[in-house]
Design a protein around this nucleic acid. Structure first.
Length: 834
RNA sequence: GGGCGAAUAGCUCAGCUGGGAGAGCGCCAGCCUUACAAGCUGGAUGUCACAGGUUCGAUCCCUGUUUCGCCCACCA
């Protein structure tokens, strides 16, 4: 029995009701083993600390569309959900809370702090999961994982131990990027470079033993001079030949440092003399290696000058700069200051300016891993779409440097390495060793560092499926079918999953990678809290409904282009939802007592209009599927929009009234069948995009009783088969004719106005054929009703300027009938009017 | 310094393998028409950034220019 639908679509109640139902019934569940073909996607795990933002909304809408579509196509779909422990980010959140209580983590101690983070996670972490549900995400929630849960921790330890044994993990004391606020090392890609205005200070370094003589060095960071252990010139620079091998006096500290010759120096830049600070500059570090220079670390872990800076000890690095510049000037050693643009690196978590910092860290030797990851894409075993991202991927993989994986924070996977204080042996093992394997001492202490968050997420495609155990899930769902993500984590995540997947599973982690755009505001600005231009997806959902929002995102998701989200567009698709809703109401009103089982489309006496809409439905199904195959979400969405509104609603529903309200029972029944069939299939096509409204209407549609006890093949539209192109419902000639009808009706509109149109609500346009002229337009349609227009279509008040305006040149053979009031002879009308 | 992308109606954007310039919103005019005023009907609006080239034909392909945006890079 059909249910009464409310006059306008009210999303909130519908969304809540159906999501609960789907979840209760276990419709999102994937089977570990199944006869059906497998389709799998792993979610890019959002940070536990996260709240749903536009990026998530887009990313997960696109994934959900694919999952729902594949499920309807009969696949055994696994959408693996979960969250990331987000080391630094999460630690920062909890540290801020502590700060608000006037405490810091060191007061608590490591264990208590970690406990506190877990407590926080239990209480308020994972709100994003609830928000994903609001979005309609059809993840298999029963499988939800966390990058620090027991299974994933085991996977992380296994990988670490194996890589260590393979010689792919090592420790080294070198310069890394250090965040003086987070107090941890960062990998190269965790540093965000920004062009900033700075200065180039030209400083005089007196030559030792030659009073009055000095060389001028140019630097953007005068405070680092405290750590200078040389100045360098180019070996072939004629100006400075005499200087090479001599010593200069480091101003302020009055330390003698050598002048070295190194090809690294650019003669053209500045004065051609460079101060060398091996402990605080990546280039200088290399120069220092070549010339065996001291590495003088002048900062503590907060970027405050340490004892090596003598009289400046205790000064923050920027305060030190100010003071050093002032003192140099006082001493007459500051020659000049130039404005100078430069790029400054900031911590990707807290934006603090990072410091090149000398320290002992753990690294992954990535070159061998990268080679395979590179090859897999070149071979096409993994496709990256849009294709232009392949180059970016290649470029990065080809120039990749070793990955610093240790972090000096507490929240994360603690590195499974133990140091023996007696013999210095390092034991790397799955479980805590009881004694040193080398000297037998039981005084072992575990490494305090934890792993980079991205280390555990690199394992996500297989760790979530139970690896290192050989599970049925791995067998069924690995490699995954597709990964959908933003380009911002191509290096952080995608590239590393490729490396780890190939190394540990010997197979790529996914066959397709679809890179989507960034969501910006309507002006094209990146959304950020500081700019105050953030649009909250949940506010949008409240206001317009999830389906409208999802449809908007899909319609905007053109490949390779950022999305500038304009709120008016969302309103437009909210209207579209309402249009679908009302088309359904109209259909339902006319389907009283209709049983789809009794009237199969095949074999019905279809009118031209029937054939046309069935043909267009058929084409739309074909086009939508094809667009989705190619990740052309916007084309799929736009095609459905056009079909629904401009064809089904604007034309077919109007045409159908003639038959539905007419007195030909056969026509009426056929029309009801076509209406039902078209709407039912349209709902299925729309379902991946608009899951809620389509389920609500689908449930209200008359059920096919053929399957027994009034039930459908499936209880939910989620598992109703996705429409495919059917050869026998292809009526190209009907489509061609209908286009002509539309053209003719438009033509008739041109002669309205000066026609006397009797009162009444509708008229039918009937075309009969006779002459050659009309045959050209209407040859298959003798005597049939081709179009129905409302009386208001024939608006009064607009005349014809010239005969060509009446594009009904065949008017002599065309008659307009007004069913309620009799017949208007167009030929006569035209005669009269023109 | 390399690399990538974009420039189409007032606004936000489609336009995939050269031949019709399009959508939504906004604007103007008219409609409370029993599916829908979150709607219906009609209307106005464009040197498709600029300059060359290829072609019977270019928004689309090629070259160059300009303007924006992004990514990567160790020139102090």
């Amino acid at each position: 029995m059909s249910r009464e639908l409310a006059k306008g679509y009210e999303p909130h109640d519908v969304e809540k009701r159906w999501y609960a139902e789907w979840e209760d019934k276990g419709y999102f569940r994937a089977a570990a083993t199944s006869d059906k073909p497998a389709y799998s996607i792993v979610i890019p795990p959002p940070n536990v600390t996260g709240a749903l933002h536009m990026g998530h909304a887009l990313n997960n809408t696109l994934q959900d569309i694919l999952c729902r579509w594949k499920r309807m196509q009969g696949y055994n779909v696994l959408w693996m959900p979960g969250t990331d422990h987000a080391g630094i980010a999460t630690q920062n959140v909890v540290e801020r809370q502590l700060a608000a209580e006037g405490k810091d983590r060191h007061e608590l101690g490591r264990e208590a702090f970690i406990e506190r983070v877990w407590k926080w996670k239990a209480e308020s972490g994972g709100q994003i999961i609830g928000q994903l549900k609001r979005l309609g995400a059809s993840c298999d929630w029963e499988r939800e994982r966390f990058t620090m849960d027991e299974g994933l921790s085991k996977a992380v330890r296994t990988v670490f131990v194996k890589l260590y044994q393979d010689g792919l993990i090592y420790r080294d004391n070198r310069l890394i990027n250090w965040c003086p606020r987070c107090h941890t090392a960062l990998s190269d890609i965790e540093v965000e470079h920004e062009e900033k205005k700075g200065h180039l200070w030209h400083i005089r370094y007196p030559v030792a033993g030659e009073p009055g003589k000095y060389v001028v060095v140019a630097t953007t960071r005068p405070e680092t001079m405290l750590g200078d252990s040389a100045v360098a010139v180019h070996p072939e620079d004629e100006r400075y030949q005499a200087l090479i091998g001599k010593k200069v006096i480091l101003p302020l500290l009055n330390r003698e440092i050598p002048v070295v010759a190194d090809e690294y120096v650019d003669r053209e830049f500045g004065t051609g003399v460079v101060k060398i600070t091996p402990a605080h500059d990546f280039n200088d570090f290399e120069v220092g290696l070549r010339h065996n220079l001291d590495r003088i670390n002048i900062f503590d872990e907060s970027g405050v000058i340490n004892a090596a800076g003598h009289q400046y000890e205790g000064l923050d690095r920027f305060a030190a700069r100010t003071r050093i510049v002032a003192e140099l000037e006082e001493a007459g050693l500051l020659e000049r200051i130039n404005d100078h643009g430069m790029s400054v690196g900031g911590c990707y978590r807290c934006k603090t300016v990072v410091e090149p910092y000398l320290s002992l860290q753990w690294y992954v030797k990535v070159a061998p891993l990268a080679e395979r990851a590179l090859q897999a894409v070149k071979d096409g075993r993994t496709r990256i779409l849009p294709k232009q991202w392949e180059n970016t991927y290649y470029d990065w993989m080809e120039n990749i440097r070793d990955w610093c994986i240790s972090r000096q924070i507490w929240w994360g996977h603690r590195i499974p390495a133990w140091f023996c204080d007696h013999c210095g042996e390092i034991t790397v093992a799955m479980e805590t060793p009881t004694s040193c394997a080398k000297c037998g001492s039981d005084e072992l202490r575990q490494e305090t560092d934890v792993l980079d968050t991205w280390f555990s997420s690199a394992l996500w495609p297989f760790s979530t499926m139970g690896w290192p155990d050989q599970t049925a899930e791995l067998k069924t769902f690995y490699p995954t079918s597709c990964l959908i993500t933003g380009f911002d984590i191509l290096f952080f995540w995608v590239a590393r999953m490729m490396m780890m997947g190939l190394h540990f599973m010997d197979e790529v982690p996914f066959t397709d990678v679809y890179i989507h755009a960034l969501v910006r505001d309507a002006q094209g600005q990146k959304m950020s809290k500081s700019k105050g231009n953030v649009i909250d997806p949940l506010t949008i959902i409240e206001q317009y409904g999830t389906d409208a929002f999802r449809f908007t995102l899909a319609a905007f998701a053109a490949q390779g282009r950022d999305i500038k989200l304009a709120e008016e567009r969302i309103a437009g698709y909210r209207n579209f939802c309402n249009k679908v809703w009302n088309a359904a109401r109209f259909t339902l009103m006319n389907l009283e007592g209709f049983d789809p089982a009794t009237t199969k489309i095949e074999g019905l006496p279809l009118s031209q209009g029937d054939r046309w809409i069935l043909h267009r439905l058929n084409e739309t199904a074909r086009d939508t599927g094809k667009a989705l195959e190619e990740y052309r979400y916007n084309e799929a969405a736009m095609g459905l929009y056009q079909f629904t509104w401009s064809e089904f609603c604007d034309w077919y529903l109007e045409l159908s009234k003639k038959d539905l309200y007419g007195d030909d029972p056969e026509r009426k029944q056929t029309t009801r069948s076509v209406l039902w069939y078209t709407l039912e299939n349209l709902l299925r096509l729309l379902h991946p995009f608009m899951p809620f409204i389509t389920e609500e209407i689908w449930q209200a549609l008359p059920k096919n009783r053929e399957t027994g006890n009034g039930k459908r093949e499936t209880e939910t539209i989620m598992y109703a088969p996705y429409p495919e192109y059917c050869e026998h419902l292809s009526f190209p000639e009907a489509a061609a004719d209908m286009e002509k009808v539309m053209a003719v009706v438009s033509g008739i509109r041109n002669i309205r106005g000066e026609m006397e149109v009797p009162p009444g609500r509708e008229i039918a346009v009937i075309l009969s054929c006779g002459s050659q002229e009309s045959l050209r337009l209407m040859k298959h349609n003798e005597g049939s009703i081709l179009g129905l227009v409302r009386i208001s279509d024939l608006a009064i008040g607009q005349g014809i300027e010239k005969p060509e305006d009446a594009s009904i040149q065949v008017a002599g053979d065309v008659q307009i009938y007004v069913p309620l009031k009799g017949l208007v002879d167009v030929a006569a009308e035209e005669e009269r009017l023109l």
